[in-house]
Design a binder for these strands. Structure first.
Lengths: 146, 146
DNA sequence: TTTCTTTTGACTATTTTTAACCTATCGTTA
DNA sequence: TAACGATAGGTTAAAAATAGTCAAAAGAAA
């Protein structure tokens, strides 16, 4: 049995998927009425299920003719990065390890995952992928410090 | 004479075997009631009998309409070649962490790298890539033990 | 007896649901 | 244009509904 939040999510995803522009705009109160729940339940669903991490951005406006809007984004901001070949990537990991940002287990793990045979793909795609992976590692390291 | 834990295991295995998707989802409390035991007994069975070494991954959610889910994974080359979606991959990492094969830093690293936005690519390619990455992780863990 | 596994239950953590109160925007009227 | 009321959405805290953890007690095996 699905929770109410799950069912609302499913419904919204369906509507977005179905729309040409991958965008959905509606009134919070109306949607709440459709599901027979309080409006803040809708806010809850948006904030737990339609996050940037899930690939959505939400906007809203209060007052008369207010609305909530959900947009599905294709998050590829660093598509333009040139990426890294295996040697470059391993060197970066080595440095992060030597400088104490990664412990030995983490460094080993990364070196094994950045391997060309593990990643597969075409040369170009693989390089870009390494760029995204390293970016994610930097972000993670940044999080832990900040 | 079979222990209660054995009987619960047997019952769950039967249900999983019988299901098309080799997956079972139910409420911990309900199952406990079926067997007339405390809910933590169910947790005990899952953590001792439905481990990654036994070929299962478990997931759960607390709160309203919470559940426990058991999935039988087939870690044959074939299966790994079919790939994993983000949810499956994260559950595998969680299990490896809970069972002590990965420390917290390694698990965090992996969870962040297995993210769909980091990996990019098409759905299919991304699933396959996760399969190769997880295989590499298994190989690495195997090396360390052997 | 000693040690390992199972069983229990009290306490904790997480997720969802609800409700009361807060704030922004629009349209109208003084 | 300033002020006000109506109409939205936002925030937050508490209640409800689950599952997890941990360690002590009980039982089984060695």
């Amino acid at each position: 049995m699905k929770s109410l939040a799950d069912r609302i999510e499913e419904y919204l995803r369906y509507l977005i998927e179905r729309s040409e522009s991958k965008t959905l705009q509606m009134q919070r109160t109306e949607l709440a009425e459709t599901f027979g729940c309080v409006p803040s339940q809708i806010t809850y669903v948006l904030s737990t299920r339609f996050t940037i991490e899930e690939g959505f951005i939400t906007e809203s406006r209060r007052g008369g003719k207010g609305y909530i809007r959900i947009r599905q984004i294709d998050s590829s901001p660093d598509r333009i990065n040139r990426g890294y070949n295996q040697r470059e990537a391993l060197a970066i990991i080595e440095n992060l390890w030597r400088e104490g940002f990664l412990d030995e287990g983490e460094a080993e793990l990364l070196k094994c995952l950045l391997n060309r045979h593990v990643l597969g793909l075409t040369d170009h795609e693989r390089h870009l992928l390494r760029g995204r992976m390293l970016r994610a590692v930097y972000d993670l390291l940044g999080d832990n410090k900040g």
